Measured scan of single mutants.
Amino acid sequence: SISSRVKSKRIQLGLNQAELAQKVGTTQQSIEQLENGKTKRPRFLPELASALGVSVDWLLN
């Protein structure tokens, strides 16, 4: 799922939720909701993929 991929990649990069949120241009709460499965397809998906160094396709599939 996107939530597990985001969380595992974030941890692999040594980032906390607030640091990832800053790179993406969103809030820590938005990252938390995404990782908890409350958000399925965030509006900041391209920025998120870029910050994590992955493709949008990788996040979604």
Rank of each mutant, 00 (worst) to 15 (best):
V54G: 01
Q33L: 14
R5H: 04
I2C: 09
S55N: 10
K7Q: 08
E19W: 01
N36C: 10
Q22T: 11
K7D: 01
R5F: 04
Q33F: 13
P42C: 12
E32L: 08
N61F: 10
S3V: 05
S3H: 10
A21D: 01
K40C: 14
P42E: 05
L60M: 11
R43K: 15
T27V: 07
S30I: 13
E35I: 02
V24Q: 00
G53C: 07
D57H: 09
E19D: 15
S55E: 11
S8E: 14
S30N: 13
N36W: 06
Q17E: 11
E19P: 00
A18Y: 13
W58N: 04
L34T: 05
L59P: 03
T27I: 06
G14H: 06
V24D: 01
A21Y: 00
L20Y: 00
R43P: 13
R5S: 04
D57P: 04
L52G: 00
E19L: 04
D57R: 08
E19V: 05
P46E: 13
R41G: 09
T27K: 07
L52S: 02
R43V: 14
S1R: 09
R10K: 01
K7L: 05
K38C: 15
N16H: 07
E35K: 01
N16Q: 09
W58F: 08
E47D: 10
R5K: 12
A18H: 12
G25D: 05
I2W: 04
K23Y: 07
L52H: 00
Q29A: 13
E35V: 01
Q22L: 12
S4P: 04
K38E: 15
A49M: 03
L13F: 03
A51D: 02
L20P: 02
L59W: 03
L45R: 00
E47F: 05
G53P: 00
L15H: 04
P42K: 04
L34V: 14
I31Y: 02
S1D: 15
Q29F: 12
R41Y: 15
V24F: 02
E32C: 09
R41P: 10
R5P: 03
L60N: 09
V56T: 10
L34I: 13
S8N: 12
I31M: 05
W58R: 02
R10A: 02
L60H: 06
W58G: 03
I11W: 05
R41K: 13
V24E: 01
P46I: 13
Q33H: 13
E32V: 12
T26L: 09
S4Y: 07
A49S: 06
S55T: 15
L15A: 03
Q28N: 07
L60D: 08
Q33E: 15
T26F: 03
G37K: 05
N36I: 10
L45I: 10
S50C: 11
R5C: 06
P46K: 15
Q33Y: 11
R41N: 15
K7N: 06
Q28V: 15
A51H: 06
Q12P: 00
L34E: 01
E19Y: 02
S50D: 13
S3P: 08
L13D: 04
T39A: 10
R41T: 14
L45N: 01
N61G: 15
V56L: 13
F44D: 04
K9V: 12
S55M: 07
A49W: 00
R41S: 14
T26C: 14
A21P: 02
I31N: 00
L34H: 01
L60Q: 10
Q22F: 10
A18G: 11
Q29N: 12
K38H: 14
G53Y: 03
N61V: 08
V24S: 07
L60V: 13
T26Q: 10
S55W: 04
V54T: 08
A51E: 06
E19Q: 12
G37Y: 03
R41M: 15
L60S: 09
Q22G: 10
S30F: 13
N61H: 12
K23R: 12
L48Q: 00
R10H: 01
K23D: 04
W58M: 04
E35R: 00
L13C: 08
K9W: 02
G25Y: 02
Q17N: 04
V6T: 08
S30R: 12
P46G: 11
Q17T: 15
N61Y: 11
Q17A: 11
G25Q: 06
I11H: 10
A49P: 00
Q28F: 07
E35N: 05
R10W: 00
A21F: 00
